[in-house]
Simulated scan of single mutants.
Amino acid sequence: MTPRTPLTSSLPTSFSVAQATAAGVPRGRLRTRTLDRPFHGVRSRRIGESAGLVALCHAYAPRLRDGQFFSHETALLLHGAPMPEWPYMPALHVSAHRPLREPRTRGVAGHRLQGRGSAMQNLAGLPVEDPVRAWRQCGSLWQVGDLVAAADFLLTGSRPPVTVAELRGEVERMGDVRNGILSRALDDVRAGVRSARETRLRLLLRDAGLPEPQTAWNLYDERGTFIAELDLGYPEFGVGIEYDGRVHAQDARQFARDADRWDAVRALGVDLVRILSHHLDGDGVAAVEKVRAALARAGARPLH
C-alpha cells in the first residue's frame, strides 16, 4: 500500500483546494476520507457532520472573497448573542456590499446588501458584521421575543457593545421590516438581563397580565452591605425572581453557595421565587403561576 502523503503543516485546519495545490499537496490526497468536505472547494482535518456553526464559519473562511463577511444571525452568534431555541437551527449567512457579489454555494445563505460604509469587525480572524447591523438583519428571520433577547444581551455587561439609540438609529436609517417587528422589539428591550430565558420569563409575565418585573434587582441589608442581585423582581411587593437553568449536580459547590445566598435574601423579607428550566417548557404557564402566587401573597391586587 502506498503511504499516505502527509499534509504540510503550513495548511490551517480548514483550507481551500487551491491553497493545498499551491502547497504541493497531490489532488488524490484531497479526495481521501481522512479529510472532511464541509463546502465545495474546502477540505478540513476535523469538522464532521455534527459541527457547530462557529466551527463551520472557520471551515468556510478559506472560501471568503474580498469584501465578503459573516452577517445576520451568524454574526450575532459570533458576537456571543443567544440564538432562538430549538428546534430553530441558525444558518450560515455570508454577505457582500454592492457591487461585490454574495456567495452562491450549498450550505450558505448569501446576501448582496446595499452599498454603505464598512463596519465589519474581526473576531478570531473572521470578518464579522457589526452587531447593530446584524441585529437589524435578523428582523427578517426571527420572532420578536428572540430579537428582544439578542438586544438584551448586547446591552448588558460592564462595557456593552451597543446602545438602544444605536439599534433604533439603524432601524430608522435602513427601515423596519415585517410590520414593524424591530421597533416593537426595541420597546421591550431592557438592560441587565443575563440570559435569553430571563428575557423570555420577563415577557411571559407581562403578556400574562402581570406587572413587568424590574431587571437586575440589587439587594442590600440595613447596613448597606450588598447581599445579592436578583434576575427579576418587584421591589414594591418584596417579590424576587431567580431563573436557574443549571443541572445542580454538575456544580455542587456553586449550588451550596447559592443556597446560602437564597437564605440571606429571604432574611431580608423577600419572597424569592425560583424558576427552573422545566417551568418554562411549553407555554411557560407553570412559571407564570408561581410568580402570580407570590404577588398574591404580597397583597397585590387581583391579577388576571
Rank of each mutant, 00 (worst) to 15 (best):
Leu154Thr: 07
Ala259His: 13
His97Val: 04
Ala51Asp: 06
Gly115Ile: 11
Leu11Thr: 10
Gly67Trp: 02
Gln19Val: 05
Gly139Ala: 06
Leu76Ile: 00
Ile47Glu: 07
Glu289Ile: 04
Leu11Asn: 05
Pro12Ser: 04
Leu7Lys: 07
Arg190Ser: 08
Gly180Cys: 09
Ile227Tyr: 00
Asp66Arg: 12
Thr32Arg: 14
Leu53Met: 02
Arg257Glu: 15
Ala185Val: 08
Gly28Ser: 14
Ala51Gly: 05
Ala18Ile: 12
Gln137Leu: 11
Glu73Cys: 05
Gln19Arg: 09
Pro26Tyr: 07
Pro213Ser: 08
Leu77Met: 07
Asp176Ile: 03
Glu198Arg: 04
Pro82His: 05
Gln250Ser: 14
Glu85Cys: 02
Gly110Cys: 04
Ala286Glu: 11
Glu198Phe: 08
Ala286Leu: 12
Leu147Asn: 03
Pro211Glu: 07
Ile227Val: 15
Ala81Arg: 00
Ala55Gln: 14
Arg266Val: 10
Ile275Ala: 00
Leu154Val: 12
Ala51His: 09
Ala22Arg: 15
Asp146Cys: 07
Val162His: 01
Gly80Phe: 00
Leu230His: 02
Glu49Met: 03
Leu268Ala: 02
Met89Lys: 02
His72Met: 08
Gly110Lys: 04
Val25Trp: 08
Leu167Glu: 08
Asp188Trp: 10
Ser10Arg: 15
Leu303Asn: 02
Gly233Asn: 11
Val108Phe: 05
Gly180Gln: 11
Trp262Gln: 15
Leu182Gly: 03
Val42Phe: 00
Leu155Gln: 09
Arg190Glu: 05
Leu35Ile: 01
Tyr234Met: 03
Ile47Leu: 12
Asn179Phe: 13
Leu268Lys: 05
Ser158Tyr: 07
Phe70His: 01
Ala287Leu: 06
Arg274Leu: 15
Leu30Gly: 04
Asp263Leu: 12
Gln137Trp: 03
Leu35Cys: 07
Leu147Asp: 02
Pro211Lys: 06
Glu166Phe: 01
Arg65Trp: 04
Arg106Cys: 07
Val239Arg: 03
His79Ala: 08
Tyr234Trp: 11
Met89Ile: 06
Gly80Leu: 03
Asp207Gln: 13
Gln250Lys: 14
Ala109Ile: 15
Gly115His: 15
Pro99Leu: 09
Thr225Glu: 15
Thr156Cys: 03
Met83Pro: 00
Thr74Gly: 00
Leu295Lys: 09
Asp152Arg: 05
Trp142Val: 04
Asp260Asn: 14
Pro12Ile: 05
Pro82Cys: 09
Leu201Pro: 00
Ser9Glu: 11
Arg159Phe: 12
Gln114Asn: 03
His40Thr: 14
Asp221His: 01
Leu100His: 15
Arg184Val: 12
Asp231Gln: 11
Leu92Met: 04
Asp152Ala: 07
Thr199Ala: 00
Arg133Pro: 00
Glu49Trp: 01
Arg173Leu: 10
Gly269Glu: 09
Pro99His: 11
Gly80Gln: 03
Arg173Tyr: 01
Gln114Tyr: 06
Tyr243Lys: 09
Ala267Asp: 14
Met120Thr: 11
Ala23Phe: 06
His278Cys: 06
Arg159Ser: 15
Trp86Phe: 14
Arg178Ile: 06
Leu303Gln: 09
His93Pro: 00
His79Glu: 08
Val288Gly: 00
